[in-house]
Nucleic acid binder design. Sequence first.
DNA 1: GATATTTACGTAAACGTTTACGTAAAAGAG
DNA 2: CTCTTTTACGTAAACGTTTACGTAAATATC
Lengths: 331, 331
Amino acid sequence: MEYTIKDVAKKANVSIATVSRIVNNQTGFSEKTKRKVLDVIEELGYQPNAVARGLINKRTHTIGVLFPKFSGMLVTEFLSGIEKAANEQGSSVIVCHTESNGEKTMKYLQLLNEKRIDGIIFTSEVLKDEYYQYIKKMKVPMVLLSTESYVYPVPYVKVNDRHAAYTATQYLIQKGHKKIAMISGNKDDIIAGKPRIDGYINAMTDNGLPVNDKYIINSKSFAFQDGVEGLEALMRQAPGVTAVFAASDEIAIGALSKAYQLGIKVPDDLSIIGYDNLSIAEMSAPPLTSVAQPLAEMGEMATKMLFEMMETGQSVESRIMPHQIIERNSV
Amino acid sequence: MEYTIKDVAKKANVSIATVSRIVNNQTGFSEKTKRKVLDVIEELGYQPNAVARGLINKRTHTIGVLFPKFSGMLVTEFLSGIEKAANEQGSSVIVCHTESNGEKTMKYLQLLNEKRIDGIIFTSEVLKDEYYQYIKKMKVPMVLLSTESYVYPVPYVKVNDRHAAYTATQYLIQKGHKKIAMISGNKDDIIAGKPRIDGYINAMTDNGLPVNDKYIINSKSFAFQDGVEGLEALMRQAPGVTAVFAASDEIAIGALSKAYQLGIKVPDDLSIIGYDNLSIAEMSAPPLTSVAQPLAEMGEMATKMLFEMMETGQSVESRIMPHQIIERNSV
DNA sequence: GATATTTACGTAAACGTTTACGTAAAAGAG
DNA sequence: CTCTTTTACGTAAACGTTTACGTAAATATC
């Protein structure tokens, strides 16, 4: 398998230029030599060296994807869509796990730059100035996935978090609930934290319902544990609530779990709606009603946008993806 | 950022060879020129082109990882360990989603070959002859993760499935259970299916307990739905069981969910033990007792082994990783 | 059948590195 | 101060491709 174009050329009695032309189906050769060369290629099992190609073409057919966390299941869903779209375009994807660490992120960007990847997908985290400047210098296209930048002109793919949260809250209101609480994630997270809280508040006020500070639990993150602690705190400080909007499915499942422990029946005594529609949502007891983001499609979309940018050399429009309430039995 | 070694050389008034030597910290230059060159590099923001390097060094510092499925959360855990170890070695990882599809897998192998990656990690699936032969021709090292080959001499990282299943069953027996059922995954899966069934059977017979065919439910896969259907079938055909060993956490959660629905109290009426210890195990109600595989460490180990093979050019010993019962409240 | 055009190639430079080899200068030995 | 060894470089080939340019042969034109 270590044959080169020269071996093929020699064996087929043609020049390497001709072999190259045939391999890349260009023009400038007869049907006869084409067949001869193809036969030799077949015989030797020749495979062009993408590294050499990359050197001269300045395209490596590889993109880099940066994830702050590898834990949640968001990652696989995104990756699944990204990988699919990239593969359709004949490209590979390199995954990078930044752990939300600035230094590590910069190291990765440097690595990706040295590898001369064709584009970058940056996910689920705010795009710091340092990152943006570096990527700009790299001169490769980038798209943001499940995040957006209020400062830099970088196209993104996202659902409208505020709107989705509004919809979720509205849904609970339509079901007749009035005392609706929220267990939010990190409220200082300007991408996934604040907007969801705002959406909740907007929906409440738009429907003439009071917004009570006691009804809003701010956690540090979007994890299971925050849900269990959140519900506990909620029951203490606002025992009258009949429904809660959780800022993530993990929080919702945590709340569900705590409710079970406290003997609170869901959905009879308390309704819970989640956010993300992860696969765990359908595995909980009772199955969790949740507002779904089309995660895989979002990954796919981001990748397609990235390729479009690579081809046209121009920026593209950001996309707001539709969210949707998946009704199960927790409301 | 598109400066080359030539630009640096010219600006520093040295030859490109000297720059190269300095960049790769070899010997053969004075302290003075080193500083000069380093200054120029800093000033220009020069970054060596890994593609050109790869061409000449025949090492791309990239490995490929093949996953049959992107759904479960096993993937992220594995990937997390793999990525960590690879990163420590200064390498990147390309992810491939084969969907257990032979054709797709071969396409991926071809792509990886063209990209001249340094090694392959093949996960969670049986290594077909076609794959093995191709990778052998590629002449890159490979290690199997969470799978093994009975036919080819390929090092692997795995837990001992039979033993782990034995341990799980034994655990139930120790807790006083006698009527123990199993909801297995696909019994034709010779890696993750059959061995777990065998382990269950061995533990039963070793403890003088009867093995009743009605107590073993064979599902098609290891998914949630198999668990809910499995428990339903089990309750119909063997209502007397007091404990069930599920061949995966997803199955266990499915069973848990069905039990809830049927009004069966866990663990009072029925004990359930899972397998994998995914993050969902701690999120279920009640939290699921499960036999844990050290997934991230397994990925890390596999990667380290791969690098060892790359460096020494020799094969390495396979590793059986320890499993462990994580006690929670479902037993 | 002579000329013009097209086709089918081959030659060689380029992509950005690393590295074997050569050589002049510096350092060390006596 | 001369001779040997070491150090600090520079030159050029190589890695495996693509592609601009050149040219001989084939085809078309009249």
